[in-house]
């Protein structure tokens, strides 16, 4: 059976989103959110929007993760939910 690749990547994206919101460690949230951004970049490459894809890879996955980790270093890692 032929599987379209976009539905597989979309499933991974949804798993990453749920995991990023449900994990109890904020550093884990940061890493999962970076993985989410890279999978989103893959999805945009599949859709042919290459300019959006490399902007997301540099700005969304790179700079956002740096902001996130810097903010966690200044605050607390633990969270209740």
């Amino acid at each position: 059976m032929h599987w379209p690749i976009d539905i597989i990547v979309l499933t991974f994206v949804i798993f990453c989103a749920i995991a990023a919101l449900s994990v109890k460690d904020l550093l884990g949230t940061a890493i999962l959110f970076g993985a989410y951004s890279f999978l989103m970049c893959l999805l945009w490459t599949i859709m042919g929007a290459v300019d959006v894809a490399f902007t997301e890879a540099s700005v969304g996955a790179g700079v956002s993760t740096v902001f996130f980790v810097a903010a966690i270093f200044r605050t607390r890692r633990r969270t209740k939910d």
Binding site: A20, L21, L26, T29, F33, M40, M47, V52, G60, T79
Partner: peptide, 24 residues
């Protein structure tokens, strides 16, 4: 979600879902 950082992550997921819809 109770944590402010989790709320920000939720906002970003919402934004990327809308962007995904427009690109598709």
């Amino acid at each position: 979600k109770n944590n402010l950082v989790k709320k920000i992550v939720g906002m970003n997921i919402f934004q990327t879902a809308i962007i995904l819809f427009y690109v598709s």
